[in-house]
């Protein structure tokens, strides 16, 4: 995580520092937003909180290691292949496991995702070992640091992350608003019964939501891995993005962006001015504050609270 945020500023230049902090916030917010939209997509479509999202994102990132050796010399092809594999993995997870949990109580489904997360972690260690890996090297990509106006610096992977997040959100908004499948997905989230009456296959829509969620999460995971290396602690980043999604409102994509910005700003500023050790707890402090003040989130729907 700390590596994903661009290099610390040089010198004591105050303005340079604040610009650097702003850049760090933007990068971290992009990470949280890109991961967080996965939580929102699944929750909004199927009312399941996917606590295995961090693990699924990690699996997609590890798949980059596999595709890197397959497509050596074509980093973009490897990247795309791995992201698409993530989509398949997500959909497969729904079809194999979570489909059986539909109609169960909400908490049983959440606990199933927790169990799934543990299973995936075990599998990742079994397949790729517990050592830190560098998919950037495998792809032959050096991740140069870029200078920004104002003296701030950002790594190429972090810059790619910000752009990817913007593109992913633009794509998701367009998909949900203008495409048939997107509208079906929204419909299924609002009233699954009626959606089925209109001929929509709910399992297909849910599988698509899981696939897209793993796809976007995988994009984040791969870019983080390119920036800072790849090991099991990536799961923690996935989990820290969850407060961002909830602060914004679990059923709102706009909310996920707002939540990500709030959480990232709080985290970067508190780390910088108070204590670096706070990094892993700040998102959850923000989350607790939000749950006490406005549990349904900034942009969420209030009725969500009564769904038990």
């Amino acid at each position: 995580m700390r590596g994903a945020v661009a290099a610390q500023p040089r010198g004591n230049h105050r303005r340079g520092l604040s610009i650097q902090l702003a850049v760090n916030i933007a990068v971290l917010a992009s990470i949280y937003a890109l991961i967080g939209c996965g939580y929102v997509l699944i929750y909004r479509t199927s009312r399941v909180l996917n606590l295995a999202h961090g693990e699924l994102m990690m699996v997609a990132a590890y798949l980059l290691l596999a595709t890197a050796s397959l497509f050596s010399g074509h980093p973009l092809a490897a990247f795309a292949a791995s992201a698409l594999l993530g989509l398949v993995v997500g959909a497969a997870v729904y079809l194999v496991l979570m489909r059986k949990m539909t109609g169960e109580r909400v908490l049983a489904a959440v606990l199933a995702t927790v169990a799934l997360g543990i299973l995936l972690r075990g599998i990742v260690v079994l397949v790729w070992s517990a050592q830190q890996q560098y998919p950037g090297q495998a792809l032959g990509w050096s991740n140069p640091a870029l200078a920004l106006p104002g003296g701030a610096r950002i790594s190429a992977a972090a810059a790619a992350l910000v752009l990817t997040t913007a593109a992913a959100y633009a794509g998701l908004f367009a998909f949900l608003r203008y495409t048939r499948w997107g509208i079906r997905m929204r419909a299924a989230g609002q009233n699954p019964l009626l959606a089925a009456q209109r001929g929509i296959r709910l399992h297909g829509v849910y599988a698509l939501a899981w696939g897209l969620s793993t796809f976007t999460g995988g994009l984040a995971g791969m870019l983080i891995a390119l920036d800072a290396g790849l090991e099991q602690t990536m799961v923690v980043i996935g989990l820290k993005a969850f407060p961002a999604a909830l602060v914004g409102g679990l059923d709102s994509l706009v909310g996920a962006i707002a939540g990500a910005l709030i959480v990232a700003a709080a985290e970067v500023l508190l780390i910088h001015y108070v204590n670096p050790l706070l990094a892993d707890v700040v998102p959850f402090l923000v989350l607790i504050a939000m749950l006490l003040a406005r549990p349904w989130g900034l942009f969420g729907t209030r009725e969500e609270l009564d769904r038990v």
Binding site: R180, I183, R184, R186, A187, Q190, N191, L193, L194, A195, A196, Q197, R198, G199, I200, R201
Partner: peptide, 28 residues
């Protein structure tokens, strides 16, 4: 539905957060 039987239910008969136009295409 695919066979050609469509039900207009008694309650919850529209998707409340979709626009009218979207309601008309939220189907297969």
């Amino acid at each position: 539905t695919a066979r050609g039987i469509v039900l207009v239910p008694e309650r919850d008969k529209v998707f409340p957060n979709l626009s009218v136009a979207e309601n008309l295409v939220a189907n297969v």
